[in-house]
Amino acid sequence: MPRGGSRILSERRTVIESSGPGETMALGESLGRRAAAGTVFAIRGGLGAGKTCLVQGIARGVGVAPSVAVASPSFVIITEYRGRLPFFHFDLYRIRDWREVFDVGWDDYLDRGGVIAVEWAERLGPLLPAGCTAVDIEITGEETRRITLAGGAGAGSAEGPS
């Protein structure tokens, strides 16, 4: 269960202007540090937006050793890491239908008490958990990015954040 205040609340949106990959990664790291068991980061942004870069930061914040390369899992869909909590890095780039995410074992990963970061989270469809942290990355310049954080995205369901 998340500790008090460790999650961004449903209604709140935070907009961060990142000056480049270093800052994007640092933001990820601070998100990762605050993440608790069960935290899901649902990340959206086109090709080259810097999703993997942000996830590399989150992994560091969750305590994945700096010597461990956190590379893109586009090919294998999911890569697991060990940090202070288990860290699961999903990349749904090759996914065409949310049912395929289900087949990969999405529910099992949700139950494992780790932190989950999902690239191409829009492809989760109905599997997007209520109470996840939505992270949208928008390209504003060659290096600069606008990163919007919001809680409870996908909580179009009545329940709202857990």
């Binding site: 090709l47 390369a69 590379a71 893109s72 586009s74 090919f75 780039y93």
Partner: peptide, 18 residues
């Protein structure tokens, strides 16, 4: 050595997609 982010084939696929 290895890739720190995208694999080579993945980079090809994504550039092709763009």
């Amino acid at each position: 050595g290895r890739t720190l982010d995208d694999a080579v084939g993945e980079a090809y696929d994504k550039v092709a997609s763009m």
